[in-house]
Design a binder for these strands. Structure first.
Lengths: 256, 256
DNA sequence: CGGCTTATTGAGTGCGTTCAACCGGTGTGG
DNA sequence: CCACACCGGTTGAACGCACTCAATAAGCCG
């Protein structure tokens, strides 16, 4: 999850915009869901295939592991996380999603959702019936190609997570997460230096393969090193270079 | 990578069979690459889209990270592993592939291969030009659907790896790998109890997020517990239940 | 044979965990 | 209104798992 190379126009949009308009053609995150250079006719075809929008309150489940798969979802605004539990009931988090991100692709393979998607705050999603999407893709090769790319990028993201967990130290993982979120906010036109952590320390830990206590200690350490300022969940990155150096493997003497 | 739920007919094939025939219709691993219930006409269309076959000697690279993406590959026989390196040059292995497995899907997103595929022994693959495949999918919804499922399963596999690395102890990961290989050989009609480990201890370590020394110690421990018999790379599983118990979290007193 | 790669085993260290106490904000009921 | 509990988070002390460093062994190939 280190890099996320969606090429979205660096729009400076407020959260309200994306939700309000109702048509894909005007959606700020169109570049994520749809291929570029779609004709007006194709665009309206796609709009016709999109189902209803769904609002989620904080804590609501968009779908749960084991439920039959029918729809893909695109986040219009808000934040969602996807998590899974193994046999023992041990929970782990496979990703944090924000506006423009797609959800549900891991369910196509077996026809049922493998993970549970929980809203981290009040959010809204586009519901896209997969069957309809499929029919559309057969007619619109561009759309099919775009969809394949999106799935492939999901694979890349998961493989990056494997690197995270497999070979990085705890502080490198933590720095990597901060930078990942920062970059994704930047791509969406928000500040890469100041943002709110929507997830709990425990959620971060379950994502990074660390215990909550370790997450807390690392954040305190980053604060003491002057890398970040942190008030509850409000984060400000003070030394981006320093964080990058840390994520790249520099030891504690990393002030760049 | 715990579960791998390809539903392949439990054919009892020798390795020679798959390679010899030359037509998809007769390939023992057809159920992996192609949707079931394809008409003869569709089948020959698919066969026409498949490019040449390529032989790999042990150690050869099928493709390397950074190379432009053009083809997907299906393994006809042999074993391949996919690995990546991060900025520092730290290598990690994202998967071990065997006959019937598909390679290259992580390259669709960015148009270039993200990982390097190395043959672990002399192998042969089908080269499938992605562009042709795409055109075919537009005409054959079944094929498209099958392809989506395959990609989705790759996502599931990677997410299982995240669990592996994120929340499992070293011995649980090791046991999980043994069982994963075992199950995959069983699906292909080979013995689930006796098989050859095609990869080095170091490769296993880079896959499991462990050091080679740890892998070696764990294998010795499994041997001493009577779970396996091991002669160089020849593995025999003596106590499947015990291994499963270990993978499920039982502590050392796991003899089931 | 010597030189190489791959694997095994030992001893000691350190990172992240575990267990536990404590803190601060928020909500709730008396 | 305060007392209380509760949840999320912080911090401390000690433990243990997997790593590091290092020596040795076992195949393999020239």
């Amino acid at each position: 999850m280190t890099e996320q190379t969606f090429r979205i126009a660096p729009a400076t949009v407020s959260e309200g915009d994306a939700a309000g308009t109702g048509k894909c053609g005007r959606c700020a995150y169109r570049a994520l869901c749809l291929p570029s250079g779609l004709s007006d006719r194709d665009l309206s075809l796609v709009e016709g295939a999109i189902g209803c929008r769904r609002r989620l309150a904080r804590g609501d489940a968009l779908f749960r592991a084991g439920q039959p798969f029918a729809n893909l979802f695109a986040i219009r605004f808000g934040h969602v996380m996807t998590c899974r539990s193994d046999q023992r009931g041990e929970r782990y988090i496979t990703g944090f999603q924000m506006a423009g991100d797609l959800l549900g692709m891991d369910a196509i393979g077996n026809g049922e959702h493998a993970s549970t998607a929980i809203a981290l705050e009040d959010s809204e999603v586009c519901e896209m019936p997969y069957a309809r999407l499929q029919r559309l893709m057969a007619e619109m090769p561009q759309l099919m190609e775009h969809f394949h790319r999106t799935m492939s990028q999901e694979i890349l993201r998961d493989q990056s997570a494997i690197r995270f967990l497999g070979i990085l130290r705890a502080d490198e993982r933590m720095a990597g997460l901060m930078l990942n979120l920062s970059a994704r906010y930047a791509m969406r036109g928000f500040s890469p230096r100041r943002f709110r952590l929507r997830m709990s320390r425990d959620d971060m830990g379950r994502y990074l393969g660390l215990k909550m206590e370790t997450v807390s200690r690392l954040l305190a350490q980053f604060r003491d090193l002057g890398l970040i300022r942190l008030d509850r969940r409000e984060l400000e990155i003070l030394d981006m270079r320093g964080l990058e150096a840390l994520a790249a493997g520099a030891r504690t003497e990393a002030t760049s």
